[in-house]
Structure formats: C-alpha cells, structure tokens
C-alpha cells in the first residue's frame, strides 16, 4: 500500500484548501485559490488510485526483461494453495513466497515458462493453475459452459418453434358459407 496518509500531505496545500486567509497571508493572489484546490484534489485522487497496487514484499532482480515478464505472468497464474482464492503474486502466505522463489530460481536457471508450469502441476495438480490445461480431467470444467450454452440454445429453438406454429383454419363448406354470410350482411339474427 502506497497510500499517502493525510498527515503527510503538503501542509501548505491543505492550508490553501481549507483556509483562504492562509493563502492570502502567504502573499499569493486570491484568485489563484481554485486552481490550487484542483491540484490538491488531483493529488488526493492519485493517492487513492495508487492503493490497489500488488503488495509483493520481496524483490527479485532480473537481467533479462523477457524473463521478468515470464515471472510476472507465472506468479499471477499460479494459485496459492493456502489461501486458495489468491494467486501467489497476491498472497503473503509463506508458501506463496517459497513458490515465488521457486519460479524465480527456475527462470534464472534458464527453464521455460512451460517447465515451471509442469513442475508445479506435477506436485500440486491442475488445481494450482488458474487456467488449467485442457485434458481428460479438466474437460468438464472447460467444456461444461459450452455444453450448457448449447442446451440453452436448443431449448430456446424448440420453444420458439412450438409457439410460432400457424393455427390453420379448419372450416367445412357450411361453416365457410355461414362465415361469408356474416361478413357480407353483418351480425346474424
């Protein structure tokens, strides 16, 4: 968290924001107050926006930017098994830290991204990947939503067809002539 606490806000900016006289006392022209306030708000908004940055504590130096990118991709795809709804990039758990170290060491040894993924799934199973590979075990997971969509589309098509069936008039000759009479002469009787 790199949120700037209120106390550390530049004092003069707050004074300008909260107290016009402080600005005047400082010799600044009165009409510049709104512009300064806008700046103060900008700083406040930027400070608030910076809050959701990842809170990874340790620093792993990389010489090769491609490896660093691979590292960032991997740690945001691997699940922390202690706190299962977090990636190892998000988690402060001890195991997550160890796994980040493991990923770093493997990449530094020149292993590929796929090597790291294989290493992890051999030990922790497909569950360790947020995007598990498509295989027999994970087929239901991947194809389930598609199957449900297909079932839904088929159901809608069947329902739509059954509703739009035209109602065909089935009048015999006597009924037809009576209808014609009504249409020509108006109401019967």
């Amino acid at each position: 968290m790199r949120n700037i606490p209120f106390a550390s806000f530049p004092r003069s900016a707050w004074e300008r924001l909260l107290n016009r006289s402080a600005v005047r006392d400082a010799g600044a022209p009165g009409n510049c107050f709104p512009r300064r306030a806008w700046e103060a708000w900008l700083i406040l908004c930027l400070a608030l926006l910076s809050a959701p940055l990842p809170a990874v504590v340790e620093y792993h130096p990389f010489d090769d930017p491609a490896r660093e990118k691979a590292y960032q991709t991997l740690i945001s795809e691997l699940r922390c098994l202690v706190c299962q709804n977090q990636t190892i990039a998000d988690s402060n758990a001890d195991l997550a830290k160890d796994l980040r170290q493991q990923v770093y060491d493997m990449l530094q040894q020149g292993k590929s991204e796929q090597d790291v993924v294989d290493f992890m799934t051999q030990r922790y199973g497909d569950f360790v990947m947020y995007n598990p590979a498509l295989n027999v075990k994970t087929a239901l997971l991947w194809l389930g939503p598609v199957a449900f969509l297909a079932i839904g589309i088929i159901a809608v098509v069947i329902l739509a067809r059954s509703r739009t069936k035209p109602v065909l008039p089935t009048l015999d000759k006597s009924q037809q002539s009576r209808l014609n009479d009504i249409l020509q002469k108006g109401e019967e009787d």
Partner: peptide, 13 residues
Amino acid sequence: LDGRIGIDYGVYG
C-alpha cells in the same frame, strides 16, 4: 529447513 522438499511433495497444509 528451506521447504524445498516440501514443495517436491506438494505440501501446502
């Protein structure tokens, strides 16, 4: 000591 063998055994809890 460093938990490397733990990782090999897929230890998480």
